[in-house]
Design a protein around this nucleic acid. Sequence first.
DNA 1: GTAATGTGAAACTAAATGGTTTCATATTTT
DNA 2: AAAATATGAAACCATTTAGTTTCACATTAC
Lengths: 131, 131
Amino acid sequence: MTSSSAKHDVFQAIADPTRRKLLKLLSKEEMPVTVISGHFPMSRTAVSKHLRVLADAGLVKERKVGRETRYKLEPDPLVELKDWLQYFELFWENKLVALKLLVESDEAVAEHPGAPFGRDKLELKNIKDHK
Amino acid sequence: MTSSSAKHDVFQAIADPTRRKLLKLLSKEEMPVTVISGHFPMSRTAVSKHLRVLADAGLVKERKVGRETRYKLEPDPLVELKDWLQYFELFWENKLVALKLLVESDEAVAEHPGAPFGRDKLELKNIKDHK
DNA sequence: GTAATGTGAAACTAAATGGTTTCATATTTT
DNA sequence: AAAATATGAAACCATTTAGTTTCACATTAC
């Protein structure tokens, strides 16, 4: 029931740099197409098509206001990406754990916060410093 | 310097479902191409090309062993994805914060019970600001 | 009412993508 | 040495993608 059965999925939607820029832009505020396309070196129509792809993936919401259509970010579908990533977090954390085991005592490992995200480098540095 | 100057970037690499499946598969163990391609309904050559894209993005590492080339996951470049996502986490967390403010007191929120990601400090700061 | 504005749809194009089959090459195996 | 195996490179093809220009249609402004 995690939706995302549309014609475009999130992974595909964010594959394009222009679309990623669009998402950032629309995260700040709702904007009509003409204003949006002012931020890009391509035609308004091209931007419009990118917006359509994003809308298909559920990543933007459109609202008609008079003769203009305003778009804004809808971040929810990014959860799918997050979940996907989470699986791999496991792996790069295991690498870290292995490294820690090489460098530190059990104590250090016991301190492993179990926090899936966060800055790995910092975490590692913390451990080292902790010695 | 943080890599990702190759011909294929991470976002593009993970856009394809086959490649995502490849990453999962290669996360478990190192495998030679023929074995890998046994898991997919396409030709060995096609799989090989997907592997090339992944390698370009730095997401798999290849190692020659005798006449075979073994591939395995290299999760590091996914950090770029994680960082990109993190920006948007902010937004869906703010939505949560707004909801919390409707339902809960500041004290309760300070416990940040089910914070989706690790960015608790920011979240708390936002809440404080809102107070 | 007429002109101007904001937008999407359509038709088109060039390039990228995902796949195929065939071929060459290096390494084992016998 | 010859046969078998593992693989990548090349050439090719169909489809998708990212962009264009042109057109039609609402809505607002004059």
